[in-house]
Amino acid sequence: MSTTFWIILAGAIATYLTRVGGHLVISRFENIHPRVEAGLNAVPAAVLTTLVAPAVLGAGPAEWAALVVTALVSLRGGLMSMFLAGAAVLIIARQFVG
């Protein structure tokens, strides 16, 4: 078995642990401390931001234009429309900026 296979298998087990783990932990407690709940509520924004921020810093004008359009479309549209708008701007801008 290749290293890649073991990475996939271990990643699958780790992922399943996150999907079942919250229930297993919470079902042991009668009440959740408000600060723990606040921390858990912040997890999605906190994690996803870290996947964007360093990429934004290292990007150029074409990428920045795409991100600005993505953010603007997000005010009205859903995830799909904002993604398509951002991707379209990126592809067009790269024809000029490279």
Binding site: P44, V52, A55, F83
Partner: peptide
């Protein structure tokens, strides 16, 4: 040229803004 290397940050930004 198709922007595939930068589509993910765009997608993740969309997810962040969704929250």
């Amino acid at each position: 040229a198709l922007g595939i290397d930068f589509l993910l940050p765009i997608y993740f930004l969309g997810l962040v803004l969704g929250f």
